[in-house]
Design a binder for these strands. Structure first.
Lengths: 346, 346
DNA sequence: TGTTAGCACTCGATGAGGTTGAGTGCTAAT
DNA sequence: ATTAGCACTCAACCTCATCGAGTGCTAACA
């Protein structure tokens, strides 16, 4: 017993209906709402087969059936193979980005918000990972007699700042010159590369070795902490509207996952190099996310670094819609970060 | 019929019990658990009086009583008058801040997280408002041939970045010199003051007037958007643990408030100059927050600008504990931002 | 041989009583 | 002024019956 064309059509109808209603689907519903030209009895037989094949689950004997993770998987794979994405969302998303970009981090927040309002699920946006991030400019800004603010500007304009203690008093001018020297020596480097070049720089500027060492330790800290990206989240409250989250305990565990950004970032990071990833229910690998699906897509900056955008929703999410929205947003972001005429080092 | 000492003691017991259990309190409970030396009947009479005075509500005739907003108000006022805050939390909070400060914004996130874990409510931290923020350093960092990143470093080390289009090609050196000139002219100014000084600067540097105008428009945009502070939130998931939020609709509306940072920032901003604000239930001014209370405290930076920390919890929150924790955190943050030897202009 | 009508069966959901118990208000006694 | 006692209220809970959506199976049919 395999999957003939009719079984597929029936399964499709069941999935569509369940995505819409979140209520177990019965044979009569299918034969009436979706004109299959088949009686409920026949549908029933087919459904029985589909259950045996593992595509359908039955909450209890006298309820309808609900699609299993395997069913969604088939559904999504078919969807991706047919490649019928890119509906009309492109325009709509573009219109959300008409306003000029102000604060860099606002872009990610904004993207997450747009994604969540469009999909009505929860959206997560990861900034491009910091590992391969290239330094554009380094500045030491005086803050107090014995402290300066170390500002590192990278390509894609993401800024890291941290306070550095200055071992001895240096006036603004001295810091200025020092900043310039550091920028000249290190711009274009990744953090790791910067670390390898620092000794040379320190050798060249003996008189300021102490300050440079302080900077060096900060950079190595940052490099060591790894590619921690900025995480923007939108539409968490959307999830509570779905019956899947009527249970307070489930909602709570979901919320608390959303609050631990580190775990979330890890969860959303793409495992492979494909444009889209769809993880359905148990495929997410999290026990208490078994009735969630995660769909991610990537975007890239001109320097080739990748960021991730993703949607988290109930397993019965509108995959087709979500995929096309993610695709549209992904290309929108890639475009935003693309700089055809940008020099690779600043 | 006024509030004699006994009524106050009974009310206190009722509030204490309700804060603990979230269950309407009966007369028998009071006379047994809290040894008043009075029978339940007497308590009953007093409770009847207290209800008439507006301090107690009765969900229905055969249930116990719950404290009204007015009761909590009395409770809190008494608490504040007696001034018995500052328990042992100071040390604990200090220990959370042992690690060195890395990214500036992390401080706020961290503070929010500590506050929420300590209180088990939701915590909100507003960075010092930007209105009186003083400029320390301005940098134009090359990003592409026709674009630069405008980085504004302010006191307290908060960095604003936004992309500026450069009307004509300028090399890194030129931008460097320009940045230096701007920093010299504008450091120590607030954004508004900077705007008044720009014309002079533009006059002095005719050859770069176009770039300066672009920067000018960005600053005026930022100034116009007003003192939008950074908002950190922690412990949203805590709230779902309270029976008050068993109702999904309530939880949803709470969550969505937490997601609209602008509204939230407005809500948390201190109305007056007092150290603590406690708004109970309807006093919050939000309809769907009628069973929430908001407690806020302020901290200040060396330049005198104020930030806000706050706790949002059910009306039956542990005010005493929350107040002392907020006090401890407030002084911790103030200390962190205090720079006794910092020059007022950099 | 695949399809369909018919029927018995299952089981969650819904709703109507009935019971319980925590809690009140009132009254009369101390 | 306090308290013991008692009637009363009402949400919460349990039980039981009913309802109906849905299934599986069988027999008839094209």
């Amino acid at each position: 017993m395999g999957m003939d064309e009719r079984k597929t059509r029936i399964l499709q109808a069941i999935i569509d209906d369940y995505i819409l209603t979140a209520v177990p689907v019965g044979s009569r519903t299918i034969s009436k709402k979706y004109d299959m030209g088949l009686s409920s009895a026949t549908i029933r037989n087919e459904m029985s087969d589909l259950e045996e094949l593992g595509y359908l689950d039955q909450p209890h004997v006298s309820a309808g059936r609900i699609p299993s993770a395997k069913a969604y998987r088939l559904y999504v794979d078919q969807l991706l193979r047919s490649g019928k994405l890119r509906t009309g969302e492109e325009q709509e998303i573009r219109s959300y980005f008409t306003g000029r970009v102000r604060q860099m981090e606002e872009v990610f927040d904004h993207a997450a918000q747009v994604l969540s309002t469009l999909t009505r699920y929860t959206a997560v946006v990861l900034s491009p990972s910091g590992a391969a991030m290239k330094i554009r400019n380094i500045q030491l800004v005086p803050v107090a007699a014995d402290r300066a603010l170390l500002v590192v500007v990278t390509d894609s304009g993401i800024v890291r700042d941290s306070v550095v203690e200055i071992p001895r008093a240096l006036d603004a001018d001295a810091l200025y010159t020092l900043s310039r020297a550091m920028t000249e020596a290190l711009s274009g480097c990744t953090l790791e590369e910067a670390l390898t070049r620092m000794p040379t720089l320190i050798g060249r500027m003996r008189e300021n070795a102490d300050v440079l060492l302080a900077v060096n330790s900060r950079i190595s800290e940052a490099a060591e902490r790894g590619p921690r990206s900025h995480v923007s989240i939108g539409g968490v409250s959307n999830m509570l509207a779905y019956p899947e989250y009527a249970d307070a305990e489930k909602a709570r565990s979901f919320l608390s996952l959303m609050e631990t950004r580190d775990r979330l970032a890890e969860l959303m990071s793409p495992q492979s190099d494909v444009a889209f990833t769809v993880r359905i229910g148990p495929e997410t690998g999290l026990k208490n996310m078994s009735d969630c699906s995660i769909v991610t897509a990537t975007y890239s900056t001109h320097s080739g670094r990748q960021g991730t955008i993703g949607i988290i929703g109930p397993t019965r999410m509108q995959y087709s819609r979500v995929l096309s929205i993610l695709q549209a947003m992904g290309s929108q972001l890639s475009e935003l970060f693309s700089d055809p005429d940008a020099p690779e080092r600043g």
